[in-house]
């Protein structure tokens, strides 16, 4: 059963924040205070999560669990970054350079992989999903926008053509707005469930 006290605190906090949003001059300070609490809680939660992650992987290493070498890499990297950061400070240019030198190529390579995966997916998407209104419209629009992306048509500099291109470029927003409205509605209902304790705190 949900404990009543946390539930009441949660519901009241939500309602206070909502009310403060609409009565800004009066509720501004309350809202700012609540948000500051939230920043602190979020920061602590991140620390807790990191500590838990490290402990979990230490346990994996201690137990010799399958793939524990990766856990070893994680723990060593974490400790090295932590110690380096603590000793030199997070603003230290050398520290930032080292961190950037590791992260940037890795992430860029992964993004390159995404391009490759998208190409491979383009080849098989119709085989997997078959012909449907969604796949056909997707295929047609993808081809049109890829052609537009090449820039050949824009370089022709026909005013009429440019008008058509502008119109076509605006078309995806029709579907996107529909999806956004759907997401918004779903989110609104989820927010109500959370706000009134119907969603459960997780630890129920």
């Amino acid at each position: 059963m949900k404990r009543p006290l946390p539930l009441i605190v949660g519901v009241l906090s939500g309602l206070v924040v909502l009310a403060a949003m609409f009565f800004v001059p009066q509720g501004g300070s309350i809202l700012a205070t609540v948000l500051n609490w939230m920043i602190i809680v979020a920061g602590v939660a991140l620390l807790v999560a990191i500590a838990s992650l490290v402990l979990t992987h230490l346990r994996f290493i201690a137990n010799g669990k399958k793939g524990f070498l990766l856990s070893l890499v994680l723990v060593i990297s974490f400790l090295a970054t932590l110690v380096f950061g603590l000793l030199r400070g997070v603003d230290d240019p050398v520290f930032l350079k080292w961190v950037g030198a590791v992260i940037r190529p890795i992430e860029t390579a992964l993004l390159g992989l995404v391009a490759l995966v998208m190409m491979s997916a383009a080849l098989k998407i119709f085989r997997e999903r078959g012909w449907s209104a969604l796949t056909v419209s997707f295929g047609v629009s993808a081809i049109i926008f890829l052609i537009l992306g090449l820039g050949f048509l824009q370089n022709l500099n026909f005013p009429a053509l440019n008008g058509v291109i502008t119109f076509v470029e605006g078309l995806p927003m029709i579907g996107a707005r529909g999806l956004l409205i759907g997401i918004g509605i779903g989110l609104l209902m989820m927010a109500f469930r959370v706000l009134f304790g119907m969603e459960g705190s997780g630890n129920d």
Binding site: A115, M118, M119, S120, A122, L123, K124, I125, F126, R127, G130, W131, G139, A142, I143, L146, I147, G149, L150, G151
Partner: peptide, 23 residues
């Protein structure tokens, strides 16, 4: 950049053609 877009276009068309052929 353009070559990348062209290749993607080709792949998409190939995918459609192969599906149509299989059908």
């Amino acid at each position: 950049y353009r070559v990348g877009l062209l290749l993607m276009l080709v792949m998409l068309l190939l995918g459609m053609i192969s599906k149509a052929e299989a059908d």
